[in-house]
Design a protein around this nucleic acid. Structure first.
Ligand code: MN
Ligand code: MN
Ligand code: MN
Ligand code: MN
Lengths: 218, 218
DNA sequence: AATAATTTTTAGACAAGTCTAAAAATTATT
DNA sequence: AATAATTTTTAGACTTGTCTAAAAATTATT
């Protein structure tokens, strides 16, 4: 099949396509993968030869349906493993990503199918991100950023946009975790900071924080 | 840490050392890894620089205590994953090896510790092989080959020497699995074939088969 | 002990994946 | 429209791990 490196590239392109849907630029890929643009340029040619992406020089890349299917499968594996780590091995949500980055490359369809069953066919990972099904389809729920909630509105925390350990640990400290109910008491015009209630606690959070938390409105 | 390739080399040397305890020859390693002697020669130099093995030209290699500790840890991971696949994901004992070959390279001490706990701290893998503890020590039970049992003697099947799918599937077909009680009814002088009873069934097996089944005498 | 056979090492090449530095193309600014 | 800034690609080099072919060392056989 594909090398670990090739898999990381198509996964990155997949993620970038969920944001922009234009051709993905060499630089954007390089930044996400923490590599050099020249390396990306080289790899893109290989991916193109393998029909994983469509590529015209200087125009960025797009995944082919074949590339998208493969990328979605890697994301599926990543997120299923994250669920496994949290549900079965008592990892916290800020510890799983690094390990899942390794586990996502294990090649065994049976392993993933059985893991899926063991976990009870989860639809979302520990960060609220949807798990693609075997065909690469995902069940997207309509979530909005906490920063877009208005004063007096209420919602449930359903995901995070930043999955870094630092941010997740910060949320843990504040008691903000998936499933918690949040009500906006105040919204400062000056800096867009919020005062919210969560589990009967009053809490003040900056706009930067509110911009990384997804809410489903109630 | 060490690359996947380096890990495969020290694991192979580790296994070969359990058989011979002399310096392990370049050719022996090449054969097990299905690679060329020249590649082994190259890699041995690298392992030696990294203090994983002691090496004098033309003399074969031996693992250093450091190398042995690392190798045992890879074997530990391999066997714990095999238990996981059988106990939690309904794999059969002939399906696990290939996947465990991949999983053994995942780097995360917490993952392995938690997996160990999830599995109830198993001491042996699905093929009856002992699982090294965190320090690399293993609990070796005194097992003997079925071929060394004498007429009228009885034992319990506790392991296999050949873990290939073909052999394991053959054993499944014959109903020979770990924990089964076996009694030797007859032993042919001519070809050393055996007639045994297992689960009240009379069965005839060749010496080649009997040479790959481990028994604990009763 | 000399010769033959085998094992092991070295020399040189290659593929994958990455990098730096420089060239080419594109995009932004005057 | 010309120039400047930025992005992207190419050229050439390096590392890891592998290979083939040949040389060197060891072991076996006469
Ligand atoms: Mn993740
Ligand atoms: Mn996630
Ligand atoms: Mn195995
Ligand atoms: Mn095993």
């Amino acid at each position: 099949m594909f090398s670990q490196s090739e898999e990381n590239y198509i996964k990155t392109i997949y993620h970038l396509e969920t944001i922009s849907n234009k051709g993905i630029s060499t630089n954007a890929i390089a930044k996400k993968l923490e590599t050099k643009a020249s390396s990306v340029s080289d790899m893109i040619k290989k991916l193109s030869e393998k029909e994983l992406v469509v590529y015209k020089k200087y125009q960025g890349v797009k995944l082919t349906p074949f590339g998208k299917k493969n990328a979605a499968n890697i994301v599926r594996k990543h997120r299923l493993w994250e669920v496994f780590l949290v549900d079965k091995l008592n990892f916290s949500w800020d510890e799983v990503h690094e390990v899942a980055e390794q586990l996502e490359h294990i090649k065994s369809p049976k392993l993933i199918n059985q893991l899926d069953a063991l976990l009870g066919f989860p639809t979302h990972d520990p960060h609220g991100d949807p798990i693609p099904d075997k065909d690469g389809n995902l069940n997207v729920i309509d979530k909005i950023l906490l920063s877009s909630l208005l004063k007096t509105e209420t919602g449930v925390c359903v995901g995070v946009d930043d999955s870094s350990s630092e941010f997740l640990q910060f949320l843990d400290k504040k008691g903000i975790t998936l499933g918690k109910k949040i009500k906006v008491l105040e919204k400062e015009d000056y800096d867009d900071s919020l005062t919210i209630t969560i589990e009967n606690q009053k809490l003040s959070i900056s706009n930067k924080i509110a911009n990384n938390i997804y809410i489903k409105k109630l």
